[in-house]
Design a protein around this nucleic acid. Structure first.
Lengths: 333, 333
DNA sequence: ATGAAAGCGCTAACAT
DNA sequence: ATGTTAGCGCTTTCAT
């Protein structure tokens, strides 16, 4: 790594002062056209790039955003990350990424490290266990997907989305509908379950059924769905004719178990997922799901941080979901 | 954002000089136990964290790695990214992420930006079109997944992996085997195709068949596989009894098309993928594939960068693939 | 073992 | 419009 070209080198070669070079670089208006051209010329010749550390030290900020996400192996998070980085790049920002691995207690540490690095803000997708966030450095923070008291959050309307999914299943004629919920300590899981219950509770009560009997909790991933489905689709007792899974990954896991058990979807079992990750359109049969507007969420969170507006809870944004009807649902036999 | 606590604040409160505080922070040995304790105490009280920009300016480096990847929506890349970040974090490094969106010409720009930010090195997964890399800043660079002249690269042995896959299909008794290759300008695609041909060329020659007749190129993603399979599985002429797809995503796309065409897998069509992404174990039927040792690749690339060893082409590492036998292959009828 | 002080490269305030 | 300069927070040499 050769010694970097500095602003002094440029100044010397262009026969101007460092101040002028700085002004040119930062587009300050009061520089004559002639000098500006000369400086730009030298900058190009020398391949000068301002040292980000020096700028950061001087300005106290450095056009960088932090993103803390539980796990990129979850395609929903990976897609979110991709959208965030894209938007940030469009606006001239770079992205520092850190995964929390679903360890709630590591999140504070990660955020503190980002603060140390002078990020202008951080997008946090909290792990399930996170109830609140230690943010001693007062970093600008936007919470995505899950609500955390006292912070602005940007998310889909999980509850309304789940309601739509349940209503859709009911409209198809299903009555025995199971809900494959997420981890019990998860805000998202609770919201989606609540949406499901908004629709189902009255019906269950009418039929004199215990709501608990049609709910099962499992991790949001493929494996969680696959395992939970084994219980749901057991041969004892009346099997549900439809299941609403709280994530597409879970739903795909359900599809997997149904396939293993030779339960054809959608003929003998309808399945609805939640998220609309890319793979959902490729599995066989294609997954019907409540789609989150991922790009809108990512862009909103990013813009909030970059915009510099005050980030109180009033800055929160909730986006509606939309049902994407594909091939995993049909009226019960 | 309150004004940061600086090293001076700590020094004043602890009644020592800034030099001593710095020595304590950096674990320099020549500090008496008593002062060390006092300083540590004050650091804890004040919640002091050294300013990364100042350290970076002074040291010329800042415990940060850059990662440039085409697209996180590709689960293979997302998993790779997750592994890299994990390893980097273990070693006390942070990760700046940038996606190139498969634009070869944007890679140089992204790397230059990372250089400006004083990363200690960058892991680059080049886009298909990249033939060589402009690296005017002399950044430490490790190329992952594909070979680029003049740079150390870390990757699976694509060719040998493809050979294994083809051999496996042959050993099952298949003769009409199609290769669903990647984009023609892709190094990885060419390597895997070459591995396939190592096995198939002699057989094809013997049968007097044109090798081109059993090869089709498509993007590495789900959609590419799905579309290519439509041609491969057309009803005119003898259909292949097996398909070797150059990525799991493609393979899953093939499964999708086969399902649509009512061609049962593996009975009437065997499918082998390449990569072993997480979803491959969940699709129905489960995908048989040539698995890349993802964690090993990610760790190796990360360690190479952090280790500070010279990064010539001799630093390259090739890891063997392993066949993962699941449910998409059977002898031909 | 410790303190004092010189910068790292840049921006912005001040002077001209 | 442009040059000069202080100083952002830190590490590290040089004295002591």
């Amino acid at each position: 790594m050769k010694p970097r070209t500095t602003i002094r080198d440029v100044a010397r070669k262009a026969g101007v002062s460092v101040g002028t070079v700085s002004r040119v670089v930062n587009g300050h208006p009061s520089v004559t056209e002639a000098k500006k051209r000369a400086v730009l010329q030298v900058i190009a010749e020398l391949g000068f790039r301002p040292d980000a550390a020096a700028q950061s030290l001087r300005r106290g900020t450095n056009r960088t955003l932090g993103v803390v996400i539980p796990d990129l192996r979850n395609p929903f998070f990976a897609e979110l990350m991709q959208h965030i980085e894209l938007r940030a790049k469009e606006r001239g920002y770079s992205v520092l990424f850190a995964s929390s691995d679903e360890q709630a207690d590591s999140e504070a540490e990660l955020i503190a490290n980002l603060a140390r690095r002078k990020v202008e803000g951080v997008v946090l997708v909290p792990s399930n266990r996170a109830e609140r966030i230690a943010n001693p450095d007062g970093v600008r923070l936007v919470v995505v997907d899950r609500r955390i008291a006292g912070h602005p959050f940007v998310a889909a309307d999980h509850r309304a989305g789940a309601r739509m999914a349940a209503e859709y299943l009911v409209s198809l004629g299903h009555r025995r509908i199971a809900c494959l919920s997420g981890p019990e300590n998860s805000f998202v899981a609770r919201e989606r379950l609540a949406g499901f219950m908004d629709v189902m509770a009255p019906r269950l009560a009418e039929a004199g059924l215990d709501p608990a009997s049609c709910i099962i909790s499992a991790p949001f991933d493929y494996e969680g769905g696959r395992e939970a489905a084994k219980a749901l689709l057991a041969d004892d007792g009346p099997r549900p004719t439809a299941v609403f899974a709280c994530s597409d990954q879970q739903a795909i896991g359900v599809l997997r178990t149904a396939f293993d058990r030779r339960i054809t979807v959608p003929d003998r079992l309808s399945v609805v997922g939640f998220d609309d990750i890319l793979i959902s359109d490729l599995v066989a049969p294609r997954l019907t799901t409540a789609a989150q507007p991922l790009a809108a969420i990512a862009n909103c969170a990013t813009d909030l941080l970059i915009g510099g507006e005050p980030l109180d809870a009033a800055a929160s944004h909730i986006f509606p979901c939309a049902m994407v009807l594909r091939e995993t649902c049909a009226p019960p036999l």
